[in-house]
């Protein structure tokens, strides 16, 4: 057994083992979206490894080109197919695993048009025409970072009211004065749009519109 044969057999063994793991993954994972990670990542790696063994074994240009083209095609098509089937599954209501903690898309998809939208409060404008909802991000250098809502006196100084604080996937709705702000938090504010530019002094960035509110 030459060294090349040894490497070829080793690569094929690795690839076959990954295929086996993909089979175990699709059988044992608790929901569709986790099973998809087994079919796309592990199986793609497995078939890629086996095709790599082929290029070493035949060791000629045409076969190598064939194998590399196949690897490229699988690496491009597997994520596209997985995205499409995952999207279709999400719309048809395939349930998530009961241990799933965060579902970022929940409530953001229009069930009729399948378009992604931000949450809006319909008809809010009619009741208070001089106020708009906006979103502002607290920059690293902002003097508000590290202070509580009571300390920055947003309502008294700037005329804005905080509706919610978004911190990563955490949402603090109707925050009270004791909530402390950190850099990279997103504040959902309601206030007069003409005073929005003043916010830059406090947060380091100006507000942007949210939905139609």
């Amino acid at each position: 057994m030459t060294l090349r044969e040894l490497i070829v057999m080793g690569l094929m063994l690795t690839g076959a083992f990954f295929m086996f793991l993909a089979g175990i993954g699709i059988l044992r994972m608790p929901d569709l979206f986790l099973r998809m990670s087994a079919t796309t990542k592990v199986a793609t790696l497995g078939v890629g490894t086996i095709l790599l063994a082929v290029t070493l074994y035949f060791n000629d240009l045409v076969t190598t080109f064939h194998a590399v083209a196949t690897i490229l095609f699988i690496f491009i098509s597997a994520p596209v197919g997985a995205h499409m089937i995952g999207r279709a599954a999400y719309f048809t209501g395939v349930p998530l695993w009961k241990g799933t903690l965060v579902n970022d898309l929940s409530g953001h998809y229009d069930p009729q048009t399948h378009q992604l939208e931000s949450v809006s409060i319909p008809g809010l404008e009619a009741h208070m025409p001089d106020l708009r909802v906006c979103k502002v991000r607290i920059s690293e250098t902002s003097p508000a970072a590290g202070k509580t809502l009571a300390q920055i006196e947003l309502r008294k100084t700037y005329g804005f009211t905080v509706l919610a604080v978004n911190r990563g996937s955490l949402v603090i709705s109707n925050p009270d004065g004791d909530v402390r702000l950190f850099a990279d938090d997103d504040l959902i504010l309601i206030g007069p749009p003409e005073l929005r530019d003043d916010l830059a002094a406090l947060f380091g960035s100006t507000g942007e519109d949210v939905g139609e509110g």
């Binding site: 089979g23 099973r35 079919t39 497995g46 995952g86």
Partner: peptide, 20 residues
């Protein structure tokens, strides 16, 4: 959709067989 991804994986493993 579970069955569709299973069919997809079957074809990938069949590719593995063919290449081997």
């Amino acid at each position: 959709p579970d069955r569709v991804i299973a069919l997809d994986l079957i074809s990938v493993i069949a590719m593995g067989f063919i290449v081997v």
